[in-house]
Amino acid sequence: MLRPTVLPFSEIQPAPVSRPSLPWLGTAADRWLLLLLLLLLAGGSRLLYGELGQGPAMVDIYVGKRPFASYPLGESRRVAVPGEAGETIIDIADNHVQFLSSPCRGQQCVHAGARHAAGEMLVCVPGRIMVTIRGSEARRIDAVAE
């Protein structure tokens, strides 16, 4: 059972090998694939997030390959970061961090808004700036907020 590589045009095409009877359900193989991917994703996230969250809540700022600075999430301050697109302002206030302004064209980092929980992240691709939050206290703040 091989698929026809190209279907003929002059005649009504033969049916491809796998057609679900109801399109939104997919074939049995489609559903197994979805289940497998979901399980892989769940296992992967556990591994990935397991190492996060030690120590106090900190904001880490990276420019390109290098760490630029780390600040406590609890202390309000405004940081000017020399990104590749120019000077970018990052604001830490009220246990939240956000891009206040950026010289980049898309402004997606500014529109992304504020972040507060461990593992959350803000990125400005043109400026090559990444802001991440880590620490168990950031988690507790999150739990209280919810």
Partner: peptide, 8 residues
């Protein structure tokens, strides 16, 4: 993998 439809 012919067992998958376009969904998979």
């Amino acid at each position: 993998l012919p067992m998958f439809s376009l969904v998979g």
